[in-house]
Design a binder for these strands. Structure first.
Lengths: 147, 147
DNA sequence: TGCCTAAATGCAAGTATTTGCATTTAATTA
DNA sequence: TAATTAAATGCAAATACTTGCATTTAGGCA
């Protein structure tokens, strides 16, 4: 189970300050566990505890927390980003194009290439997102198309 | 060499109409060859030829052309999307985090998994972007950090 | 050629996210 | 504990992109 105190410790270690706003944000993600939420949803939750927190503060913190890998940010293809606590093992995502459900996958393409000096690039980051239809949505598609 | 007439033919085949606006957009990409541009840059070029073309038309066409794989859309991590003509062979990109230079790579992670029914998902799309430093930028980084 | 209709466009307003700058505050040090 | 200061926040405006709806138009057909 992920504790917000541990997340705070990690922030401090990396030289960030623990503000009231940050505490609330971290606490929210700790409660949500692995559920994905948008910046808007986070803002609505957070504002209950501190009505004067600003939207730009939410965005700025999402950005920082994503950069230092406390959060994971994905594009489900709906024009909005989704965020959730990052399980620390390196992974990528399968994303259902219909219901938005995601599944972590532990397959990583970089295991298949030499990252040190690949095509004259020194690789430091990468992003693999695989889109498709989950079992349930696939079933619905087959039914509705009469197959 | 890519001809705008060929691109128009492809659009017609797929059931899209050839409008004045679309002609200008396709023509622009054909001229630019493989150069990456943003929606804003495209708009500025396009408006020279038809001053009353609308921004939403530009965005809508970029979207359609990307969907049908005439264009390729990438996130260079600068908060803006870049578009260019898609070379038809399936590929992904290496992107320099400093100068934004890109390089097509012909390595594809899906060659390593069974896409038909991977973890109960039926895969239909995917996106792999690899970020790093190109040779030149890496050299500059080493110099500036005194190594 | 003129008529017809679905597709495309223009416009204006909306949403999602970012940024610059003045103010506040966490956390270090005296 | 008070002073200090760099980091974080709030606010307002900017940017990037999307959408709904009324109008226009490409392209098929009489």
């Amino acid at each position: 189970m992920i504790k917000n105190k541990d997340l705070e410790k990690e922030l401090v270690q990396k030289g960030y300050k623990i503000t009231r706003q940050r505490k609330i944000i971290l606490d929210t993600f700790a409660r949500l566990k692995k559920r994905w939420i948008t910046a808007q949803e986070l803002y609505e939750i957070v504002i209950e505890k501190n009505p004067k927190i600003n939207f730009s503060t939410v965005y700025r913190n999402l950005d920082i927390l994503t950069r230092i890998s406390i959060l994971c940010k994905i594009d489900k293809g709906q024009g909005v980003y989704y965020y959730s606590l990052n399980n620390k093992d390196h992974h990528h995502h399968l994303i259902c194009k219909l219901c938005g459900k995601t599944k972590s996958i532990h397959f990583c393409p970089l295991e298949y290439i030499d990252t040190e000096n690949f095509q004259d690039f020194t690789i430091v980051e990468h992003k693999l997102e695989i889109y498709g239809y989950c079992k349930e949505c696939m079933k619905d598609r087959l039914v509705s198309s009469g197959k």
